[in-house]
């Protein structure tokens, strides 16, 4: 990025109107991917001078144990519903989950899910890191996921969405080819980096379950209706859109929410305009189409 300048210079402006429609594989109009966040939150993490981990003195019992619900109960509840309706996951992974709860990572891997890095812990932030420190967490991410799953990570969602001005250049230098941290478009777009070939993968804060329940204060059924409206609109627009559903099992996998959410998956799975897929597959398909054009 152009550090310190008014325009960070991440990408060129490209208005939505007038773009050439294209089809996703199978002649589908909208690529739908689900991004479960599989996370580990430390009970007593060290302090980052730029951001507190927990609102309360440690242990923050509700904050921490709510999130731990994912790794004891709700991961499986969410994953079973996804598998039942044919939705793979593209996992935003706290890398240290590979050490703490390898069973959760193995379960996702066995379901054919893709992994990308969400930092080492969701309680360790990138703010304030120097270049060597940032390289260390990228190298740790690549090495640890390869050892745990055999997969080579391709994407990045910054830990707790904490960035430095050099993050995008560094992940591109290491060969990662998509970022989930930019929210400027409903289609993949090229991102300007010093080296490499990075695209922005449409993720979503707006229909993220955390925003749905704790920013917009939706009921479970209101959130389900929101996802269906989001899907219907993107499927109706000119072909080539992307819909991401970012999830946290400790939220969507609560017993009052999982039923209405299953109705959303049933709705999308029954609609023949959806390409139900993973983030890396979207990146490959988009590149295949847009490299030919160029």
């Amino acid at each position: 990025m152009n550090e310190g300048e008014k325009d960070p210079g991440l990408y060129d402006f490209a208005p939505y109107r007038g773009r050439t429609p294209f089809s996703w594989p199978g002649d589908k109009k909208v690529a739908v991917w689900i991004s479960p966040n599989l996370e580990f939150y430390e009970i007593d993490p060290p302090a980052n001078p730029h951001r507190k981990s927990w609102a309360k003195p440690h242990p923050d019992v509700v904050g921490q144990s709510h999130r731990d619900h994912a790794n004891r109960v709700s991961h499986w509840r969410m994953a079973e519903v996804m598998s039942k309706h044919g939705f793979p996951g593209s996992v935003s992974l706290s890398i240290a989950l590979c050490q703490h709860h390898p069973n959760v990572v193995a379960d996702a891997n066995e379901r054919g899910w893709e992994f990308f890095s969400h930092g080492i812990y969701n309680t360790r932030y990138s703010y304030g890191m120097d270049e060597a420190q940032e390289r260390a967490i990228i190298e740790d991410s690549i090495r640890t996921v390869r050892e745990a799953t055999g997969q080579t990570i391709r994407g990045w969602l910054a830990p707790a969405l904490t960035h430095t001005p050099r993050t995008l250049d560094l992940i591109a230098e290491y060969g990662l080819d998509y970022t989930c941290d930019l929210y400027h478009d409903d289609q993949p777009q090229r991102v300007k980096t010093k080296s490499g070939d990075l695209i922005s993968m449409p993720y979503s804060l707006e229909v993220n379950d955390h925003y749905g329940f704790f920013v917009y204060n939706m009921s479970p059924r209101e959130y389900a209706d929101t996802l269906i409206r989001q899907y219907e609109r993107l499927a109706a627009e000119p072909s080539g859109t992307v819909m991401c559903i970012p999830l946290h099992s400790y939220l969507i996998g609560q017993p009052h929410r999982i039923g209405p959410f299953e109705d959303v998956l049933r709705h999308i799975a029954a609609d023949d305009r959806a390409w139900i897929t993973r983030s890396g597959d979207i990146a490959d398909a988009w590149r295949a189409i847009h490299t030919k054009e160029a």
Binding site: P46, P49, A96, Q99, H100, P102, G128, A132, Q133
Partner: peptide
Amino acid sequence: SLDPSYLEYPNRRL
């Protein structure tokens, strides 16, 4: 830069 301990994980274990 952050204190080096911020990238140490003494409790990163099973």
